[in-house]
Amino acid sequence: MTRNLLSVRTGPAAGAGPVRRPGRTFPSRRGIATRARLATASMVLPALALFVVMIVIPVGLSVYLSLTDWDGYSADPGFVGLGNYFRLFRVSEVLTAAVTTLIIAGAGTVLLNALGLGFAMLVHRKSRLNSTFRAVLFYPHVLSALVVGFLWSALLGTTGVVNTFVTEAGGEVLPFLSDPTWARTTLIGVIVWFGFGVNLVLYIAGLQTVPQDLVEAAQIDGASRWQTFRHLTLPSLAPVVTVNIVLSLVTLLKTYDIVVSLTGGGPAGSTQTAAYLILSDSFGNSALGFGSAQSVVLMVVTGLLALTVSRLRAGADEAVAK
């Protein structure tokens, strides 16, 4: 999409090519090939090595540990086969966390994208006011999720700022964080408040690529705003929508920091997410094998969901490419 932009930029740089060195002796063909191969290797291998050591090996380790009952520090892990995986379905805490995570990911993805796209439509035109407004919508993302969680828990806790205000005014305490349904709703609300600015920015960037002349032409032809949006804007935004959905989904499936600081997983464990449970089970309960089994499942589910969404959206994306 930035292709045309880019070609403009590449113009002058192309002229400023490297300096020619006259009188240079050329090595043999074979020498060149070897040197080129070495050079390529030196470009690929450092990144690949780091990726393998820090990501591929740990993933493998996770899979291995998930087949053991290791506590994390004793001498040797006992092999338990798929026992940990079968246990996943019997431990109600894990099932609750799975439901909570899916609710957060589902509702969160819808809200982040609806608000992101909605506000993008509202403020994508260039103006001073719009750019200030964008900054106002985006700023929570600059704070860390941990800070945001602590802040909202101070505001919404049972003895927090809002509830003290409400009770002083004669009202009943609002169970923002003390009732499971309320707490999950509050959690999603805070996540959306914290994060939809990012989606907004991505959608605005996408909207810049919608051909404005077509939009204007459509409006001159008497198309309603909705029709223009539905048949012109949205289809040409398709790849941006896909990126946004996948990004939101992947991010929300690993929700952790905000749970730690906002609800601590409570009340009664109702806001524990998969990532929260993995970290607390693995070390906190000295159940590394069981935690690893949860990790592996979360990883597979995340991958599958992201792939499914990309597949489902492939048609829409291709339509734009043509």
């Binding site: 806790g157 003895t159 009340p267």
Partner: peptide, 14 residues
């Protein structure tokens, strides 16, 4: 019934 929203550190103050 809303006790769960109260922190164990605040409860004694109550």
């Amino acid at each position: 019934k809303n006790a769960l929203g109260l922190d164990e550190k605040t409860a004694p103050a109550h």
